[in-house]
Amino acid sequence: MLTTKNLEYWYDHKENKLFNNANLEFAEGKLYAIIGSSGSGKTTFLSLLAGLDKPSAGAIEYQGVPLSKIGLTNYRNKNVSMVFQSYNLFNYMSALENVLTAMAITKAKHANDKEYVFKMLSNIGIDQEMAKKKVTHLSGGQQQRVAIARTMCCDARLVVADEPTGNLDEQNTREVLNLFKDLAHKQKKCVILVTHEPEVASLCDQIIELKNKKFSIV
């Protein structure tokens, strides 16, 4: 589904590459974990997969088509959905409005949008009363669930998450990971997580480690 070909990235000088010749393949229905030490370039790699930035060299292909051809804005809009460590929800909106706004931007269509979102939020433990509250009134775990619900309701086949459990306690971490598993295994999406927690990575289908500028499958 998603392939990286000789992918390289550097900030200022070519000599200071974050990673070299990354050739990886990501398939639908699987949950991937990318691990590595802090500052190794995991988040940068994820941002390239999410179409938030352009690679310095090499290419990324989505279903065989280079992202440069699809167009990054178009790619982000239709094919990929992101979950951030700090949730990045619209703090002036309710949980329901956050999800509906994302659906409107990505043009995700369902029979009855509002009912559909209520159902999805309910499935991940956010009831209607909570869904109508401003997200700033929800706990960190609840906000991350809303962020995940946002990716579930959008029709993107690829979900990328940057340290999605970084701000959560053990119980919430487990619950959120179960949601990601469901996204991969039940909704057949390709889910790629970046984490520095080995316990989280161990629950994923495949672990990819970034070490010494090289990716390797653990």
Binding site: R76, M82, N88, F90, I105
Partner: peptide, 13 residues
Amino acid sequence: RYEIGVLLSLGEK
């Protein structure tokens, strides 16, 4: 700026 970033990450023009 985060809001803008999220909007752009969602593919908003």
